[in-house]
């Protein structure tokens, strides 16, 4: 891939990540700007410190925003914003 191809691929992921961050901040009413959350930031426990109630809220929000149902209780989906992006935008997943 050329440098421009790589920039385009990175922009696609960063757009999805930005959409996820905006959704998290809005749905959970967090007092921070979405851009403050980094793509690699852990969402639960250490990191953004979301809890199990927040997970339920995010399940609903993700389905409404991205049309993707995440009901398999696989917590690794929430390992980071970028990991979540793989699941809500299949074009980003490593196998794509």
């Amino acid at each position: 891939m050329t440098l421009e191809d790589l920039r385009a691929a990175a922009a696609l992921r960063q757009q999805t990540c930005a959409q996820i961050k905006k959704m998290i901040v809005s749905r959970l009413d967090l007092p921070i700007e979405p851009a403050w959350i980094t793509d690699d930031q852990p969402l639960f426990g250490r990191g953004l410190e979301l809890d199990s109630l927040d997970v339920l809220e995010l399940y609903v929000a993700i389905e409404a925003e991205f049309g993707v149902a995440l009901y398999d209780s696989d917590m690794s989906v929430f390992g980071s914003v970028s990991r979540l992006a793989d699941h809500v935008n299949p074009a980003l997943a490593p196998s794509a």
């Binding site: 891939m1 790589l6 920039r7 691929a9 990175a10 922009a11 992921r13 960063q14 990540c17 793509d39 970028s82 980003l92 490593p94």
Partner: peptide, 10 residues
Amino acid sequence: PDLAAAGLKL
């Protein structure tokens, strides 16, 4: 920053 994203071959 415009290249700091996952899924790129470098």
